[in-house]
Design a protein around this nucleic acid. Structure first.
Lengths: 339, 339
DNA sequence: CTGAAAGCGCTTACAG
DNA sequence: CTGAAAGCGCTTACAG
């Protein structure tokens, strides 16, 4: 059923019906309420979004472009917290949510990019989606990475990790180690770094964190050896457990393990338990993110709060008001019992 | 930039350019590749989805209509597992995902419903969205509820809970209790039921589960008293803890607590720990869902696996092949250490 | 306050 | 193999 059909049925022009739905000031209250109730009766739910978008150039749809697959993102507590914050703001603004992933490179995805009025990029994207959006001139916000002139939401990963490391490493004889996420590209194996790996571009989040840890350790006069820095390709329990087993079976067993996510830290606690090691007495463990489960872990995790929910709210609000701000959110050290 | 602009620039008709993108068989390979590479060069990303949808009546967008707010859903592990399964299937089929919630009743939402080619309803929806979609004639799948003639994915909540209860209640002297989710409507308080509450429509999931528990208890010759059945308005830790504290401080303290979600069970374990009670020695605890954290809880939860991910995959696959099946998935008892 | 008409950017049946 | 033309369902500037 289209406006034209309704127009015939009601004996009123299509323009007037359109105005009844969209511009109440353009017609009398009486006519409007007659039109609306008639539409209700005959089952016309209102103008189609597609035709309206084509005509007006506005869809009221906001896209979130995730740098991981949607499937992975739904299993990542940080991503879902972030999305929860976004949706709270969008719901209030009567905007709809389209979920996209820059890992997908299909025509269908490219076409879909023409729909949204604005974009939130979460994490540095793969492929060309970012350039296409820039070229489109539509408003966008980038989160957890930076691009010249583009409004953004970030945290200071370096400082946060430096603070965390210097909290956890208290003793000159401590042996710290790092379980790091995505330190290397296109490398699907869990393994320790070699010395040459450390000559690396500091821009990526994982390396900002790594250098923060190293700086924090240095404050206590301690160097973290490359063989005590483990690369995990992806933030999941199974890989984290593998990394934890590797570290905890080293001849010089680390007694402080700095983890780049809470999920990893939870895995370390589990492996430690299996090996009969106590946290934090035998090995201190720190996380990153402060997901809900961090509080529930045994022991509760000392970690950095990323405030994912608030981050989502902020990103959505910046987008909706077409802000140009490049914002830094606080990342707070949360001391619990694991370190 | 539109097809018309490109048409002028390349000296080829709009139809041919459209065909270059959508129907390769309609033009020569040479011309097509020339068109495609020229488009790339001038920065034309392909036909707009909106215009295409208007013309062809197909958007390649699938909507998931959640019965809770999006914000809540993103914090619910079952919902996110389910979404993860859906997105895996959609990505392969080159479909896009629009996330909708039946709790929202705005014109913008109604308009947005005109976009998707198909719908997955997760949980019994509020409001009129369901009727509008039925009227639209678009394909839909309903999950975790039923509607005449509509293809669906469900589990047998009654049987699962009966099995779980009869596993957990082993002794004639056991005192079982239930922490139930959404047993009453529009009731925001955590409180035990009264006898009259038990005369209730059995259709809703929470009541299917409740009656399953009661049946399982009955098999061991035990009745569960209304004052040992607690209503939780929503599935979050804080309310579950409140309910757990209430139950565990009863004069006749329950020693088996059947929880309608893993989140609730995790909260019970936490409260038990705080009260110095051991699980399962002093109080057995069962969950429902089998979320990732169920395995990590101390002790690991005995629960019912809902296979949320597989449920999402199944729902999406049924939708894409326009199936009419009404499917029942297995809900398996998973025995771990908590009961 | 109301309606006739143009046009948003495409796809597709059809003619050549 | 290619192009001219109609039309998808709207919104909006404009005329009355």
């Amino acid at each position: 059923m289209s406006l034209k059909d309704v127009s015939k049925l009601l004996g009123v022009s299509t323009a007037t019906i359109s105005n009844a739905f969209n511009r109440p000031d353009q017609l009398s209250v009486a006519l409007r309420s007659r039109i609306l109730s008639e539409c209700e009766r005959i089952g016309y739910a209102g103008p189609s979004m597609i035709a309206r978008s084509l005509r007006s150039g506005q869809s009221d749809v906001i896209a979130v472009m995730l740098s991981d697959s949607l499937t992975y993102s739904f299993s990542d507590p940080m991503a879902t917290d972030f999305m929860a914050g976004i949706t709270e703001v969008l719901a209030k603004a009567h905007k709809q949510l389209l979920l996209l992933s820059s890992t997908i490179k299909s025509d269908a995805q490219i076409r879909a990019e023409s729909l949204p009025d604005g974009f939130i990029f979460y994490g540095a994207p793969e492929g060309d989606s970012f350039n296409r959006v820039i070229r489109s001139g539509k408003p966008l916000i980038v989160v957890d990475f930076d691009y010249p002139e583009v409004p953004s939401v970030n945290i200071d990963n370096y400082e946060a990790c430096k603070q965390l490391a210097s909290h956890a490493i208290t003793n000159a004889s401590d042996i710290p180690a790092i379980l790091g996420m995505r330190l290397k590209h296109n490398d699907d194996h869990v393994h320790p770094l070699s010395a040459t790996d450390l000559d690396h571009d500091k821009q990526e989040i994982s390396w900002q964190r790594l250098f923060g840890y190293l700086a924090g350790a240095q404050q206590s006069g301690i160097e973290i050896l490359p063989e005590h820095i483990v690369h995990l390709p992806i933030n999941i329990m199974s890989q984290a457990e593998e990394g934890a087993r590797y570290l905890l079976s080293q001849p010089k067993r680390p007694n402080v393990i700095l983890c780049m996510s809470d999920i990893i830290a939870i895995a370390v606690c589990k492996v430690a338990r299996e090996l009969g090691l106590r946290v934090p007495e035998d090995v201190k463990v720190t996380g990153f993110d402060d997901i809900a489960e961090a509080t529930r872990n045994q022991p509760p995790l000392t970690t950095i709060s990323q405030q994912g929910y608030e981050k989502g709210q902020l990103a959505a609000n910046l987008l909706l008001k077409a802000s140009n701000e490049r914002t830094m959110m606080d990342a707070k050290l949360v001391v619990r019992e694991s370190a």
